[in-house]
Structure formats: C-alpha cells, structure tokens
C-alpha cells in the first residue's frame, strides 16, 4: 500500500484515502470544435503508459478533496515527489537518468 503525501494537507496518508485519476499534464484542447477527430481522440484516450517514471493525478477523496500530482515509478512503485496542480515536476525520467549518469561517473573516477 502506498503512503502518499498530500501537498495540500501536508501529511502522508494511506492510499485508500485517495483515488487515482490518470495521467497528469494532459491539457484539454482550448477549442474542441476546431480540432480534428484524431486530435480529440488522442486527447481523450491515448496515454503514454510508461514502465518507469509516470506523472499522474490523484484525488484526496477522504481528505481535502483536492487534486494534485504524483511522480511515481510504475515498476518499483517508488513515489519520487508530489506537487500541487499547476506546478511542473522537478523529478522526471530525464533528471533521474542524468543523476544516474553522474553517480556512475563518480564511481568510475
């Protein structure tokens, strides 16, 4: 079971207090009528579904009832950070890869 830190309540609570609500940072097209069926379908249904670092939204259903973002590893289930809506992640697949590279080079020297 995950213990998830809610950035609004500022407390780590059990997973069952939350609902998972899907991939984060997917922006709703500003003018749906103006875009193609392909673009609309992509927005509604197509997801990146990575094995590894995933940015996703959770809803604190039994707490503050607010949405926030979580950066989580879908393979190891490690939660790297949680952050408020509207913010961008500070930890991404790229930054982790860069950190690993630095660590390896450190070992080598």
């Amino acid at each position: 079971m995950h213990h998830i830190y809610c950035p609004y309540c500022e407390e780590a609570r059990e997973e069952e207090e939350y609902s998972y609500t899907g991939e984060a940072h997917i922006e709703r097209p500003k003018d749906p009528a103006a875009i193609t069926d392909e673009a609309w379908g992509d927005y509604l249904f197509f997801r990146s579904n990575p094995r590894g670092i995933h940015h996703e939204m959770w809803y604190h259903a039994s707490g503050c009832r607010r949405y926030f973002n979580v950066t989580r590893n879908t393979q190891s289930y490690e939660i790297h950070e949680t952050y408020k809506m509207g913010k961008l992640p500070t930890i991404t697949a790229k930054t982790i890869a860069a950190d690993t590279l630095v660590a390896q080079q450190g070992d080598a020297s």
Binding site: R47, S48, N49, R51
Partner: peptide, 18 residues
C-alpha cells in the same frame, strides 16, 4: 501489459493503461 512499452519504441501511443 507491455504493449505500451512496445508502442513507445516506435513513438506510438496507445489508448491503453497497464
């Protein structure tokens, strides 16, 4: 379950969540 990983190899996204 690994279909999304396969699709990502050619830059495709699928309407699938694992």
């Amino acid at each position: 379950g690994n279909s999304g990983v396969m699709a990502a190899m050619v830059g495709l996204r699928l309407p699938i969540e694992s």
